[in-house]
């Protein structure tokens, strides 16, 4: 009985934190803030999916989780690189 309530609570709080990040995304004075916000959103989604996989006790979500983690990292790095020199692949 304990686990379902905890997982539901977890789902709820993660969505709240995602809403907060979204708010930061909208307001974010400088652009890096917005990148940070989007990075946190992807982490929250990862957390969300893991909680869901616990809730439904399925194995399928772990691929999505790993993929989201990888892609989250990739996009934030790309955005950051873009910000710095304007050229994402700077020719050495």
């Amino acid at each position: 009985m304990l686990l379902p309530t905890v997982t539901n609570l977890a789902l709820f709080t993660i969505t709240i934190s995602m809403a907060l990040c979204l708010w930061r995304l909208i307001v974010g004075p400088s652009f890096p803030d917005r990148v940070a916000a989007s990075d946190t959103i992807s982490t929250n989604i990862v957390a969300l999916l893991i909680v869901l996989s616990i809730k439904f006790t399925t194995q399928d979500y772990f691929d999505a989780v790993l993929v989201i983690a990888i892609l989250g990292f990739l996009s934030s790095v790309a955005l950051a690189k873009f910000l710095i020199g304007g050229s994402v692949f700077d020719r050495d």
């Binding site: 979204l22 995304l25 917005r34 989007s38 992807s42 989604i45 999916l49 399928d60 979500y61 999505a64």
Partner: peptide, 24 residues
């Protein structure tokens, strides 16, 4: 930039919906 980023977020959210509806 913000436009593109927000578009990315939309994509991510859609994919979570896919996951929720069990279409990995």
């Amino acid at each position: 930039m913000v436009g593109v980023l927000a578009l990315g977020v939309v994509g991510f959210l859609v994919s979570t919906l896919w996951v929720v509806f069990r279409a990995p």
